[in-house]
């Protein structure tokens, strides 16, 4: 189960399937709670916009991480896929960073 080839084994034992199912259900619970928390946050009305943005994006990031790690098996990802996503993340960050920076760096 903890071996990194978990998803690739053709036949999984009933035990490991049960464990996987439990993890999926746990993620589902986190996602449900996260959604409720996000909406609740909206009605709290924080003092500053940046607080709202940070909390909302933090919850979204946690939810996304759960989906990626468990539903998409990334917690057991093969090296080539981790590398691919690592570089994709860098290029995305560069794009986002420079797009936003360019708005603030226009003189005048």
């Amino acid at each position: 189960m903890t071996k990194c080839t978990m998803t690739n084994e053709t036949h999984l034992s009933a035990d490991s399937l049960r464990a996987i199912t439990q993890r999926f259900l746990a993620v589902f619970a986190v996602l449900m709670i996260g959604t409720v928390a996000t909406v609740a946050m909206y009605y709290v009305h924080f003092e500053h916009t940046w607080q709202t943005v940070s909390v909302a994006l933090l919850i979204a990031a946690i939810k996304a991480a759960c989906v990626a790690a468990i539903f998409m098996h990334l917690s057991h990802a093969e090296r080539s896929i981790s590398l691919l996503l690592f570089f994709t993340a860098i290029f995305f960050a560069a794009m986002l960073g420079f797009l936003v920076y360019s708005i603030y760096s226009i003189p005048g």
Partner: peptide, 24 residues
């Protein structure tokens, strides 16, 4: 499984779209 990966990704995108477009 492969199509499922796609589906989870689409879900993941929505996880960001919902707060960003509806709430912020």
């Amino acid at each position: 499984e492969a199509t499922g990966l796609f589906w989870h990704f689409v879900d993941l995108v929505w996880i960001f779209l919902f707060p960003v477009l509806y709430l912020l």
